[in-house]
Amino acid sequence: MPILNVKISQPASDRLTHDVSEILLELTTRILRKKRELTSIAIDYVPPEHWVVGGRTLAAQGKNSFYFDIKVVDGTNTKDEKAQYIAEAFAAFGKLLGSLHEESYIYVHDVRAEAYGFGGLTQEYRYIKGKT
């Protein structure tokens, strides 16, 4: 917990997968205080000629882009933490990918603890179990 779904406008590579996952693990652990060992990341690579912004492909614009969403339990992070996370993630991807299109997105989903979980158990159950 949490899960991150990432799309990057680059060809797939082991090196980029490693770099992206390390950036996201570091930011998610440091800023959002999530456990590294419970953080899952799925990365999809989209060719720049198949990613369209404003009616033109990224390839035609000479730009790169990314999108990722992360699901966290509602109430576990402040607005300031989420704003810092989004700002630092955007900057890190800019350094990694170069020529970053401004229309690159990060979405932090606040989900209800009783509607979210892993290993067959909700986060609400884990919270209550941890109190006993």
Rank of each mutant, 00 (worst) to 15 (best):
R15S: 01
R15W: 02
L16V: 00
T17M: 13
E22L: 06
E22A: 03
E22V: 00
E22C: 03
E22Q: 05
I23N: 08
L25M: 12
T29F: 15
T29N: 08
I31T: 09
K34E: 07
K35S: 13
R36D: 12
E37W: 13
E37G: 04
T39G: 04
T39A: 03
I41V: 03
Y45L: 01
P47W: 08
H50I: 15
H50Q: 11
W51F: 11
G55V: 05
R56Y: 10
R56C: 14
T57Q: 10
L58R: 09
A59Q: 09
A60C: 05
A60R: 09
S65R: 02
S65F: 01
Y67L: 12
D69T: 13
I70D: 05
I70S: 09
K71I: 07
K71C: 07
K71M: 10
V72R: 03
G75S: 03
G75F: 00
T78K: 11
T78I: 11
E81N: 10
K82A: 10
Q84R: 12
Y85A: 00
I86C: 05
I86H: 06
A87C: 14
A87K: 15
A89Y: 02
A92W: 00
G94L: 02
K95N: 11
G98M: 06
E102Y: 15
E102K: 09
E103V: 07
S104I: 02
Y105F: 07
Y105M: 07
I106T: 00
Y107E: 02
Y107I: 12
V108N: 03
H109T: 06
D110R: 10
E114M: 06
A115Q: 08
A115K: 07
G120V: 02
T122C: 00
T122P: 03
R126Q: 06
R126C: 06
